[in-house]
């Protein structure tokens, strides 16, 4: 008898790899076709499980980079050199392979249009991945909710979704700003330092607009950003955070 999927229950399933794309030297986008569509919300993640020939299993969480409205399920994975899972996903996975995953996971770090805004998305490094899903969803539903993204990254070479993000021009609803913390190209007119109080005060919406804030990145980055936003007067209850790190 086939195992019936109970609503809300997570079940492992196989997803076919239909496309792969290098984003940066260390990150790769994986386009997947799961056997059963996940029906995810922007900001959610999946667990990915690898099984070795001897039965040893390793499992990690990866944010979903695609919007619910996109045709395929997309993950973007950063290679951690001493990682158990990410080097395989970034270097060895091939089109046509099947990947074992379960999801969607998470109900806190998610954004739907009904949650409103204005939206402030703050991403550090590959923390931009779930924010990109929100950005794409915002665009797909033609939301009029004002959205601003601050993306902190070491250099332009390390910007994930570079074409997509730099192509998007501020149009009133969408405003994407970068801070390049280590290396800036000649003539760079964006921010050029790690996030600090002045930078966040400049980017965040006025406190009285009560922005809904999503911060994702390495633990230290998230703590710094959230602490500064609260000290600027933003409501801690409207700041949602997701931390990741080498695991």
């Amino acid at each position: 008898m086939e195992r019936a999927a109970v609503r809300g229950r997570l079940t492992w399933q196989l997803a076919n790899v239909v496309e792969l794309a290098a984003e940066t030297a260390r990150t790769r986008t994986i386009v997947l076709e799961p056997a059963e569509p996940l029906g995810h919300r922007a900001g959610q993640h999946v667990d990915v499980r690898l099984t070795a020939d001897d039965g040893y299993q390793a499992q990690r969480s990866y944010s979903i980079a695609s919007a619910p409205d996109d045709e395929h399920l997309v993950l973007t994975v950063e290679r951690l050199d001493d990682g158990e899972v990410s080097p395989y996903l970034v270097d060895d996975l091939r089109v046509g392979d099947a990947l074992e995953l379960r999801g969607p996971i998470g109900g806190y770090f998610v954004w739907d249009e009904s949650l409103g805004g204005p939206l402030l998305l703050v991403g550090g490094g590959s923390g931009v991945v779930p924010l990109r899903a929100m950005l794409r969803h915002h665009r797909a539903v033609e939301s009029r909710i004002p959205l601003r993204l601050l993306y902190s990254v070491r250099s332009l070479d390390e910007v994930i979704y570079r074409d997509e993000l730099t192509r998007a021009r501020p149009d009133g609803e969408l405003d994407i700003r970068f801070t390049l913390t280590r290396e800036q190209p000649d003539g760079w007119d964006g921010y050029a330092r790690r996030i600090d109080r002045e930078l966040l005060a400049d980017v965040a919406w006025p406190v009285e607009d009560r922005p809904l804030v999503y911060v994702c990145g390495p633990t230290g980055f998230v703590e710094t950003a959230a602490d500064i936003l609260v000290s600027l007067g933003h409501d801690a209850g409207r700041i949602r955070t997701e931390r990741f790190g080498p695991t």
Binding site: G8, S61, I105, G107, P218, T241, E242, R243, G245, T247
Partner: peptide
Amino acid sequence: MSAPLDGNAIGGQLNEVFGTEMTAA
């Protein structure tokens, strides 16, 4: 000990244990 992550990172395990989404609990 390395810097902690947060409850989002165990959303899958919590769902497994409780049978429902728990990160927003």
